[in-house]
Amino acid sequence: MKNVVSSRIVCFALLVSLAIASPSIAMGSSIDHGTSYGGVHFSQLAYDEDGVSNDANPTLLTGRLGHFFANQVAIEGRLGLGLSDDTVRIDDFGLAVDVDMELDRLFGVYAVGHFPLGQSASIYGLFGFTDAKATFSTNGFSDSDTDSGFSYGFGVDIYSSDQFGLNIEYTQYLDESGYDLSALSLGVKFIY
């Protein structure tokens, strides 16, 4: 888990450095009051459960819609659907069992605060509420579970025009007793 978090921090730091060093492209009103946006994220998830030695890493495709109700502050809704599952081996009581984990769906509402980096990028932090449903399968048996809780994260947007940007984001979707669910996401953002 420490290596995954370290590599995510390095990726984020490199993208922030790129944003600061990139040539100036006017952000225009991309983070101003009244602006709306949409986007799509591809996410590599990390499901870490206490007592299991390795993480499950399924993938997720997430749609985002947001609106700036104040300069640099937006409210955002997300709906994510699982793309692929991942298998982990659990050794318990001397038996090794392969368990498939898939995130079926995720939805949430978040407040997002931006801090501009020059004219072509902004870093942001988010916090809010996420509800997620996952399915666990082994040896022909499966069980689904739904959970919800507080979420937080940070990311960077790099704008190539007034209407289009790319971003990278780290999000801690759920941090519950016994497990946590986080994501490293790459995405596109459309301003309208």
Rank of each mutant, 00 (worst) to 15 (best):
D145G: 02
S137G: 01
G153C: 03
D131L: 12
T138E: 11
S151N: 04
A132P: 01
F154Y: 14
T146F: 05
I123H: 08
G153E: 10
F141G: 15
G149L: 09
F129N: 11
Q119D: 14
V112P: 07
H114M: 10
S144P: 00
A132E: 09
G113H: 13
S122I: 06
A134R: 08
H114C: 06
S151Y: 09
H114Q: 13
G149C: 01
T130H: 01
A132T: 03
G118W: 04
G125W: 01
D143L: 14
D145N: 13
G153T: 08
G128K: 07
I123K: 06
A111G: 15
F154Q: 08
F136D: 07
F129P: 02
D143Y: 12
T130D: 11
T138A: 15
F127H: 10
P116T: 04
I123S: 09
S137P: 00
S148Y: 04
D143S: 14
F115G: 12
H114E: 12
V112Q: 03
S151D: 02
Q119S: 14
F154S: 13
T130F: 07
G118R: 08
A111Y: 03
F127C: 14
H114G: 00
F129V: 04
T138P: 03
F127P: 10
L117C: 05
N139I: 13
S148Q: 11
G149E: 07
I123Q: 05
F127Y: 12
G140D: 01
I123N: 01
G128T: 05
F154P: 10
H114Y: 15
F129Y: 15
F136K: 03
T135C: 05
N139Q: 14
S120T: 12
D145R: 00
F150A: 02
A134Q: 11
D145E: 15
G128V: 02
G118V: 07
N139L: 15
T138S: 15
P116G: 04
P116A: 06
S142A: 09
L117K: 07
D145A: 12
F150L: 06
F129W: 15
F136R: 02
Y124K: 12
G125Q: 04
T146K: 07
Q119W: 06
A111T: 13
I123G: 07
G153K: 00
S151H: 03
